[in-house]
């Protein structure tokens, strides 16, 4: 597991989500990338209930990634995170009295997985309550473990198929001391997905839709 960057791709002018994804797939294939199956990342939101002392309720996010199919990741908003076995979901049902599932808040990114040399590219359509909201692009450079080392290299690669809309160094990395490398589990990746899902969720609020 190498250095991973997740970013949101703005829709192409006058194109739908699926059309923009198709354009991107075509660009990747022209570059010489090979399709290797598909991937899914999903995120469920839980409200912490039953804390007597009127504090604002904290949110708990439970995420799954098809790259690590046997584990499940629980992230507290701004707090600690936990990597657990897949049946953590069952435990969450048992904890219903403390954490309530915010139904309709489930966000999911689903799409194809491409490999180009030592890069892994995942282009997914972000859906929320079964409507497509945006596009996520995950780029992983597998051989390198220090984000600061290969960032320029990754930027150059992303430029080759994303054009000018390339992201800045993800904040998960910039907030860490230099030289600390990405851990073997995918916490850094999932944190980036969570940020992206949060952005997508807010974006949805703007048109005034209700869930």
């Amino acid at each position: 597991m190498g250095v991973t960057c997740v970013c949101q791709l703005p829709l192409a002018e006058g194109k739908s989500v699926q059309q923009t994804i198709d354009i991107l797939h075509k660009k990747l294939e022209q570059l010489g990338a090979v399709k290797q199956g598909s991937f899914t990342v999903d995120c469920e939101t839980y409200h912490a209930t039953g804390n007597a002392s009127g504090q604002p309720t904290k949110l708990l996010y439970v995420m799954h990634n098809s790259e690590t199919p046997l584990s499940c990741l629980a992230l507290f908003e701004g707090g600690p995170c936990l990597t657990a076995d897949g049946n953590f979901d069952v435990l969450m049902i048992k904890l219903k009295s403390h954490f309530q599932n915010a139904k309709g808040h489930k966000v999911e990114s689903r799409g194809s997985r491409y490999r180009y040399c030592d890069f892994l590219i995942k282009v997914g359509a972000v859906t929320m309550s079964s409507s497509a909201r945006g596009i996520s692009v995950e780029v992983e450079y597998c051989p390198c473990v220090v984000p600061g080392d290969c960032w320029n290299l990754m930027k150059e690669f992303m430029q080759s198929f994303l054009g000018p809309s390339i992201p800045e160094l993800p904040s998960v990395f910039s907030s860490k001391p230099e030289g600390l490398y990405a851990p073997v589990d995918c916490v850094d990746t999932m944190t980036q997905y969570l940020e992206l899902f949060g952005r997508v969720r807010k974006q949805q609020v703007l048109p005034g839709t209700t869930r």
């Binding site: 010489g32 040399c117 890069f119 390198c144 290969c150 320029n152 150059e156 080759s160």
Partner: peptide, 20 residues
Amino acid sequence: IKLFQTPCQRCGKFLQEGLP
């Protein structure tokens, strides 16, 4: 040690055919 940090001295790019 700077395998991923140094661009090529001739073409000035980082990647060529996906390799640094």
